[in-house]
């Protein structure tokens, strides 16, 4: 197999772009943490984390080209987390 420079470029281009976006998001996250927003801080940080996860999963883990089954499995974990959090909090938020 020959691998010319153009080959290398196509190998790197997409992932590199995703990496740059991730780095940007990371910087925003770090910076925003020092701005006092009260409860807003954790919300902003988690929102950015969620976007980072989405970018990572879609472009670096290549979910965008994956079979729908794989996407369903990836979503299933999140659905079960949601179940765990919402039902546990249904106790804690109504307790006292």
């Amino acid at each position: 197999m020959s691998n010319g420079g153009s080959d290398m470029r196509s190998l790197w281009r997409g992932p590199l772009l995703a990496w740059i976006v991730l780095m940007g998001l990371f910087a925003i996250s770090l910076g925003s943490a020092y701005i006092p927003l009260g409860h807003g801080n954790v919300a902003v940080n988690l929102l950015i984390a969620a976007v980072m996860l989405a970018v990572l999963a879609t472009f670096l883990m290549d979910l965008k080209n994956a079979k729908s089954l794989v996407r369903i499995v990836a979503m299933a974990g999140l659905f079960w987390i949601m179940m765990m959090f919402s039902l546990t909090f249904s106790d804690y938020l109504t307790r006292w």
Partner: peptide
Amino acid sequence: GFMVWGHHMFVAGQSPFANLVF
């Protein structure tokens, strides 16, 4: 089956609202 675990905790000190849900 994943959403019913709280029925083991009706007397454990869980909130009455959560008891109803579970």
